[in-house]
């Protein structure tokens, strides 16, 4: 009898809490959609009253331009070119960044010796190297790949080193006393502990790889999304320029979502809340 009463109270409370959560979520979703739609409507119908639409185009024109670019195949061709450069550059940057960090961490004093040079390298705005890379490697995909890799390498490198160095000393000590040798400690403690920092670096650097490749394309290229934007700009085709930008941003967003999902899958402890 009393058990039934308690059950009813619990069920009621759970029900109310669920409804509150659902209502809160609905408000947030409505806000997100509303803001986006509002901005687009403003751009479409009201922005022209303030600024000449020749300079800012309109969402509908941009959409039409994307459809046209898709229809004649140039969107796919150029997106493929850019995505190829970005992917190769990104993988090279991540690989060298990870491998370099691990090698230095295994050595004694290696990181300390290289640190000032690495920081000097970090201070160079990589973008400023784009014209130089174009001179060295020509108009093909190579300078794009190199710039994308440079944009990625340092971030992955420094985050791997910092992540491993931030691991709780006492955790490492305990595992060493338990009998783990140097390489075992790296595998069992240091890398898993640093994995969230490394994974975050690997996730955020994809956008940087895209910046590097597109930028190199803007300097000099005959294909790619950057080339598409550049060509449109020479023709004063604002809608197509925006179309290129929208496509670039969409690719980065989709890839980020995929990497973030993989991250949650691989490192569940990093996102899990810690209970008392």
């Amino acid at each position: 009898m009393t058990a039934d009463a308690a059950g009813a109270v619990v069920a009621g409370a759970v029900d109310r809490q669920r409804r509150t959560v659902r209502a809160d979520r609905a408000i947030v979703s409505a806000g997100i959609v509303g803001l986006g739609v509002g901005a687009l409507l403003f751009w479409q119908f009201a922005l022209g009253l303030i600024i000449d639409t020749r300079y800012v185009s309109t969402p509908l024109e941009i959409a039409r331009s994307i459809v046209a670019l898709a229809a004649d195949g140039s969107l796919l061709r150029n997106a493929q070119a850019t995505l190829g450069e970005v992917t190769i550059g990104y993988l090279i940057g991540v690989g060298i960044g990870l491998a370099g960090a691990l090698l230095l961490l295994m050595s004694t004093g290696g990181y300390e010796i290289l640190e000032p040079y690495l920081l000097a390298f970090y201070s160079i705005p990589k973008i400023a190297l784009a014209p130089l890379l174009t001179m060295w490697f020509g108009l093909g995909p190579t300078p794009k790949v190199v710039l994308a890799a440079l944009m990625v390498f340092f971030i992955v490198f420094i985050n791997t080193v910092a992540g491993v160095r931030a691991v709780d000393r006492s955790l490492v000590d305990v595992v060493r006393v338990m009998g783990a040798r140097r390489l075992t400690t790296l595998r069992v403690v240091l890398l898993p502990a640093a994995a969230p920092a490394i994974a975050a670096a690997i996730r955020v650097t994809f956008a940087r790889a895209m910046v590097g490749a597109v930028l190199a394309e803007l300097i000099a290229s005959s294909e790619g999304l950057g080339y598409l934007v550049m060509r449109a700009s020479r023709q004063f085709d604002i809608a197509s320029m925006f179309a290129g930008v929208v496509v670039i941003a969409s690719i980065v967003m989709v890839v980020n979502l995929v990497i973030a999902a993989a991250e949650r899958r691989l490192f569940p402890w990093a996102s899990g809340t810690v209970h008392g």
Binding site: S170, L171, V174, V175, V177, M178, V189
Partner: peptide, 30 residues
């Protein structure tokens, strides 16, 4: 480092990415 002694520290120092049994097996694994 003296691996022939056991050391239980004030913090539990369990590896967060290993299950309970995975943590308990660690020394045997090494």
């Amino acid at each position: 480092v003296n691996t022939k002694v056991g050391y239980i520290t004030q913090d539990d120092n369990l590896l967060p990415w290993r299950s309970l049994v995975g943590n308990v097996e660690l020394g045997l694994e090494f």
